[in-house]
Design a protein around this nucleic acid. Structure first.
Lengths: 341, 341
DNA sequence: GTATAGAGAGTAAACGTTTACTCTCTATAT
DNA sequence: ATATAGAGAGTAAACGTTTACTCTCTATAC
């Protein structure tokens, strides 16, 4: 009766194979200290019993769980999704599992997750595109596990990261609009307070303008939250309050798409009446119509990179260097060259 | 020196508070068997030391990890993403963590994941929209953990699930096209061999046709894989090989969007020249232009439901009943009523 | 023929909790 | 004054592994 509900342990294997648990462990790990005969016997018994090692017990002794915690501001955004995909891939290849956490951009919730991850003894942590508060840093320090950032920075560069050069990318996006003859260019920027992703993109935009002799005007900038709805309301604000503009740079594809929706609803044809360039190159951005001209970030690759950096750190590497990955402007259907006047 | 790298355990707390580890444990779990004085002392010391319980050790003794494994055919699809979001939410509320696995529709890979999840002693497993092979069922049985299915079925209904009524939903979608005056209706169906999601939708389509006196023709059906690319190639095939049609029912939004792309490229205007209805109601479906008319599935809710069912089972509930959630046709911009001839 | 090295394998402690049992008080009932 | 109940707390085993040590052979070197 008991056999029916008992899941076999290493001891069961040991007993049935007439060896000690230690020997079974050695065989299973292919260490030394057993004869060929024993090895065969152990393997056969393990197979027979359907034995699987218990990673929890293993984790307890060698203080490794082969598990990594990943925190996203919103799991369901196309953005997080693409990054997650790359991470998952790399994790699987390296024998790690991923616990996903959706922080919903909420500081308290993030702290709660950090504690859970600590208790679960994850081997490392990745933060994706999220502002890193000091609280987090303190908690992370107490956890004594390596951390890697994707698409964000910690103060004083204290944590390794992989990201693109936001300012340069924004500069390029804006310049592209200018080269297409636009001079009245609005921007939907990221969260106002966000100095890490929001500000550099705004700076790139401003710099491009000024380098081409176009005065920057705060009145042509609206702030969103990188998400669809934020893009929509920013666009509405721009349309009603800003001086007229012929082109728009949105600091995220989601916001660009939100803005496009508002434009369509208002009878503004894209790109005929308004040119738009986004930032991210989500998978959906090429699915929509017209397909979005945007700054491509290799998101899956960035996820993969971050995970590989993290694994190196977990493996004992003392330091990894930050990685600036290459962005790229991809021309699709939402920017129209303006006829010279 | 050692203090510097040592992470405090329950024993450290015990020693510093002059009590036994058992007492600390009792205090922390708010059981009985300690005075108020002791409680205060223990709590204070735990706080001072920055003590956090080790869930791995805990898991070892009470054979619970508060962790759930979730398997998706492709994490980066909008589909999985929305479901995951609902699950993550519910998991967090109930003190569970989620390990995500991307099976890439690969049987071997799935088995590998199942084994990892078994070793990691997850408390339960959720399969999302994936064909359940017999191999899996065997492995799952050996794991002795509860399983719940989302958007799929196992043979003989042996595993509880939450899904919509695919056949009825497809019937409704097709009927809607018919009621809008269409009689030449093509379909992009799911994977040919897939009897679980693919076939019912095909059946619903066929049934609706026949109930309205329209002969079903195999030549107007093309098969995709539920993903974007599959939709594109199916559409190309339909356009070149099928008899002309004025409307199209796609068994997934992704395929519908892929088909729309092909249509646009071919100069076919939607909905003027061709009406399209999809299936899923992904978040992106309302972001694109024109916004997709489709069958809404409450994906996040389904994810949440599945997770709650699973937790009930983990909690010892003997049985949960399957849940058929309500779908809904949402009218947006891709279906045009056909003028009566 | 003895010393010795190394192969093969077992013993037991350790990882950090939880929990069943046990023990010692103090307070109350008789 | 004694029996007894219950509060407060400790002891130790258990969970399933890994691993440092130890032990016993057999084979080889001399």
């Amino acid at each position: 009766m008991d056999q029916d509900t008992h899941v076999p342990t290493i001891k069961d294997v040991a007993k049935k194979a007439n060896v000690s648990a230690a020997t079974v462990s050695r065989v299973l790990h292919n260490l030394s200290g057993f004869s060929d005969r024993t090895k065969r016997k152990v393997l056969q018994v393990a197979e027979e019993l359907g034995y699987r090692p218990n990673a929890i017990a293993r984790g307890l002794v060698n203080k490794r769980t082969q598990t990594i915690g990943v925190l996203f501001p919103n799991v369901s955004g196309g953005f997080s999704t693409d990054i997650l995909h790359g991470m998952e891939e790399a994790a699987h290849e390296n024998g790690f599992s991923i616990i996903v956490c959706n922080t919903a951009r909420d500081g308290e919730r993030t702290m709660k997750y950090l504690q859970v991850l600590r208790e679960k003894q994850v081997d490392g942590i990745i933060f994706a595109s999220q502002v890193i508060k000091d609280d987090y840093v303190t908690e992370l320090a107490a956890m004594r596990v390596p951390v890697v950032l994707v698409n964000t920075l910690a103060s004083k560069d204290s944590i390794p990261y992989v990201k693109v050069d936001d300012q340069q990318a924004a500069y390029q996006a804006t310049t592209y609009l200018i080269q297409n003859g636009h001079r009245e260019i609005a921007m939907i920027a990221g969260t106002l307070g966000d100095r890490l992703t929001g500000l550099p993109r705004l700076k790139g935009y401003r710099q491009a303008l000024e380098d081409h002799g176009i005065p920057f005007s705060e009145s042509r900038v609206a702030y969103g939250d990188f998400q669809l709805e934020g893009g929509r309301s920013a666009m509405e604000k721009l349309l009603s309050e800003a001086p007229p503009f012929t082109a728009l740079f949105a600091a995220s594809d989601e916001m660009a798409i939100g803005a496009m929706g508002v434009a369509f609803e208002g009878g503004i044809k894209i790109p005929r009446d308004l040119s738009i360039i986004g930032y991210d190159d989500l998978i959906v951005s090429r699915m929509i119509y017209p397909p979005l001209t945007t700054i491509h970030q290799p998101l899956a690759l960035m996820g993969r990179s971050a995970l590989e950096m993290l694994i190196a750190l977990i493996g004992g590497k003392q330091e990894v260097s930050n990685r600036i990955v290459q962005h790229r402007l991809v021309e699709r259907g939402t920017v129209r060259p303006l006829a010279r006047d």
